[in-house]
Design a protein around this nucleic acid. Structure first.
Lengths: 97, 97
DNA sequence: TATTCAATTCCACAAAAATGGAAGTATGGT
DNA sequence: ACCATACTTCCATTTTTGTGGAATTGAATA
């Protein structure tokens, strides 16, 4: 994965609110969580939350799908794995060196 | 490690120039690299580079030590490990769930 | 079809980050 | 003491983020 794409993911995870959102979504599993549910725990205005969510979507860390009136947010594990892989593979020195 | 401290690290890694710096320093190993050496490969003004380096220092991702006129930057592996641990432990769901 | 619910987009403003020239600091050499 | 080297800090400016009220969209229900 390209350096810019990784940097963008780090950048979006580098905000307390967004990191909290992402952490919760990862814990929630493949079902994801409704935006409203996130709002209840975070206690921030809807528009602010929506901005943060859309940023996470932009870099591919989460996705949304609608079920009736409810929009579910789902963590994208492959994107998370890309970040982990970057840190362990490209960034870390291996023990033999 | 506290969420804020992790978010700060992500935030600083979330910039192309800083991520490049950090990646190079990790590859360089415990010897580290002089600031001037980073500047040669990055080709950016010294003041700009210095700002980026000091931000990485602020969040504990790198350290500096002087040898004569030369300031060496050294990646802090424990800080890197904190980030990796966060992603794998706190953030990732485990297979049993 | 009017209303409510769930969430987003529009808009505007405040705060923080990024950038780099110029001046300053620390160290070593002559 | 003076000059060069290796960086940093100061200062100012531009750009990007963050924030949230108000208006809007999409979908269900009376």
């Amino acid at each position: 994965m390209e350096l810019n794409a990784i940097a963008d993911k780090f950048s979006e995870l580098g905000h307390k609110t967004r990191l909290t959102i992402f952490k919760q979504l990862v814990k929630a599993g493949s079902e994801g969580l409704p935006v409203g549910n996130l709002q209840q725990t975070l206690k921030i205005p809807g528009s602010t939350l929506s901005h943060h969510v859309s940023r996470l979507i932009n870099v591919g860390l989460i996705k949304q799908h609608r079920d009736g009136r409810t929009l579910y947010c789902i963590a994208q594990y492959d994107a998370l794995q890309d970040v982990i892989n970057f840190l362990t593979d490209e960034c870390c020195i291996d023990a033999s060196e």
